[in-house]
Design a protein around this nucleic acid. Sequence first.
DNA 1: TTGTAGGCGTTATCAC
DNA 2: GTGATAACGCCTACAA
Lengths: 315, 315
Amino acid sequence: MISSLKLARLCGVSQGTVDRALHGRPEIGAATRKRILDAARRYGYRPNPQVRELLSGKSRLVGGIVPAVNSIFFVDLFNEIKNELGKHGYRLFLTPVSDEAEFLECLEEFAARRFAAVIVVPPRDNIPIPESFSRETAVVSLLSPCHGNKTHFIRCDEVKTGRHAVDFLFAQGHRRILHLTYSRRAHGILAREKGYRMRMSELGLKSAVLTDPGVALLLTNVRRKKFTAIFAHNDWLAIAAIRTLEQNGLRVPTDISVLGVDASPTLMALYPNLTTLKYPFAQIAGNSVRVLLGKRAHKIAPTFKLKRGGTVCHL
Amino acid sequence: MISSLKLARLCGVSQGTVDRALHGRPEIGAATRKRILDAARRYGYRPNPQVRELLSGKSRLVGGIVPAVNSIFFVDLFNEIKNELGKHGYRLFLTPVSDEAEFLECLEEFAARRFAAVIVVPPRDNIPIPESFSRETAVVSLLSPCHGNKTHFIRCDEVKTGRHAVDFLFAQGHRRILHLTYSRRAHGILAREKGYRMRMSELGLKSAVLTDPGVALLLTNVRRKKFTAIFAHNDWLAIAAIRTLEQNGLRVPTDISVLGVDASPTLMALYPNLTTLKYPFAQIAGNSVRVLLGKRAHKIAPTFKLKRGGTVCHL
DNA sequence: TTGTAGGCGTTATCAC
DNA sequence: GTGATAACGCCTACAA
């Protein structure tokens, strides 16, 4: 990529003249302008945004960090965020990270590069963000909160999601409902579980939670305790569960119902008839961007909308 | 993030002295060094890599571009690439793009930022890369070649993959084999199909190809033409097919066998017992990085290794 | 209508 | 031991 100075030399003019031609300013002769613009096109000139950013002290870059594993949902979410950022002239650079050390290293790199903001899915809850960092760079965290001054946690009411899931299954006639979730301690995971437990208890039902290392235990659990429905933390777990059940002679939803959460595009394309609660991708993306622009977050509908599919039956 | 000049002012020294302290050079007093290092730590100082890159004319950034849709495989692949790049001190910034226009826009941005290289999965075959671009920035393309001077297409022999799949199913006793693939015209897709057709023909068998818009047609096809096996272009299609079949009373592999390709970690975690041909993630990642370092690509094993699962039966 | 100067943050090289 | 200076590419402001 050619620089504006080199372009000026090639055209036998000064850098200032090149600047006038490129930015369509009036104080320049028509012939000179044409000559410069032609050369610029021929050499594929494009100003280096890094320098602009250095000069103005303002960057239009937003760094994104997602866990490297099981990233379907995150990538779908960040694609939405990328589109939203684009509307405001920001650009997203995404990085998958494998652990907390890499996560922090990445944050530092983004800060050192003076990125306008970072939007992250932390590997666990309450990772401390150094004061020196969050003082200058807006940190938006999704799914897990971060511990630090100016970090914004964008979320929807996951407790209500859990309650909502129970209510829906209850309305279909289910009483023995198993919650399938992850053992990772993250806000979104824990809050949904909490909502499930609260609502089950209020309805006079007994809670039962199985975490991912125990998916192998799923069958014995289902058979022995005669669950009629499974509320899975997300679509991925729901599909994994359906697979396990069907492989072992249990039919979904004839023998047992399965409810997922997210309606993540990639997985929905795979399993179009999954019954699931729609995660508000657009609102989360919208609020993430609003917050990093310094605006207040919009209120997000308190509970997820239902996508009716064929994996939950009315008892 | 504080700058070295501000750090110098705070410590009452010059920028040069700060530099000496930070880089552990000897020509500095022990007390001064300690004072500066303490301040640097307190303020979380970290040199701005953008400036370093500007100054040296060399960047350690590699841009990655992946299609925004159906990105499971791409993200798994780029995670491997990110790890490989990390070994050589490079950093990956990934961007999902929705169409060709966005793809080209992204390339230009990477070039304007003087990225060391870009590694892309183009939205279609032979997208022309402007001469002015590839002259300075190494372009590595995966799955689909690009049209341009210095663009390197890293791939494995996908024709052999197709042949290999047929051979494997043939050895299990299958004769009526359907190929399920995408309608998108991309090298990897077309080459696998070609290998399938060639080998089927050599074995005296009749080819049958169904592209994704016709997944709904899958059932009628399978039932009417009595296929005993499906060779899916990738794991995603394989799982989608298994789902469709099982939803409609056909058992896999009792009634029909399904073979996928990729063994992409995210999908394998979902469907551990899928029979699939392992895509050489590590070698593709390794070669991508070798090429952008100016080295020659290693030879990649001519055909994918098989992961034996429970979705293909011996007839 | 065009050329020149200064500054963003860092580093290497010069002089004191 | 430490400070000053130049350079990278771009842009704004001022001088010619």
